[in-house]
Structure formats: C-alpha cells, structure tokens
Amino acid sequence: MHEVSLVESIVTALEKMMEEEGWTQISEVRLRIGVLRQVNPEILSFAFETVTKGTPLEGARLFVTDVPLEYRCRECGQMWGEEDGLCPACGSPSRETLAGMELEIESLEVEENP
C-alpha cells in the first residue's frame, strides 16, 4: 500500500511544478527506484492510474528503472552489490550505501505552449 503514498507525493510535486513552469500537460514520467524500497511495479502502475484520474497527469505514461544495490567499504574501498553485511574483501562492517535506496523522479516529458 505504500505505492499509493508514493504516487500521491509524486502527483503533489508535479502539479506544483506544472503550475510554476507553465506546462500544459505531462505525458511521460520516468522514475528510478532502489531495490531496497520494495516497490511493486504492478501496484505502482495501478496506483498511478487511479491517483492521477482527474488530475493534469491523467493518461501520462509511467516508466520505472530499478536501481540495484551498491555498497562501498569505508575501510578498503571495495564495491559490492549483494545484500550481504560485511565487506567481501576485508570483512569490515563499515560501509556506505551508494545505490539501492532511490526514490527519484528522473525525467518528464511535458507539453508547453509555444
């Protein structure tokens, strides 16, 4: 059910942006979503269709790119991607999450008055 919350946030942000930028329509929305966010693509599409009804985003095409996990070891700099705790090279528990947590609006296709 968090897909609905996400779509509501997207619609609120984009409606505001449309008004500020003077776009007449948004025909395409591209998102980047990290795997750790556990977004179900089918539920997201359905939520998008439902929530955008009656808004200026109605009928817009939705594309989602999944972003895989990427960690970097703070000790030795090793990069790895599986959901595994310790650094596979040096065994350190200290790591940065570089990717996999994204919830991003990557780009839009918009219409504007010439």
């Binding site: 942000a13 930028e21 025909s27 919830l103 609006i105 780009s107 918009v110």
Partner: peptide, 10 residues
Amino acid sequence: KKIVTLQQSI
C-alpha cells in the same frame, strides 16, 4: 513537447 530532466527525490 520537451523532455525535462529532474533527478529529484519523489
């Protein structure tokens, strides 16, 4: 029509 790159958080 135009493409707008945002790369901003939802």
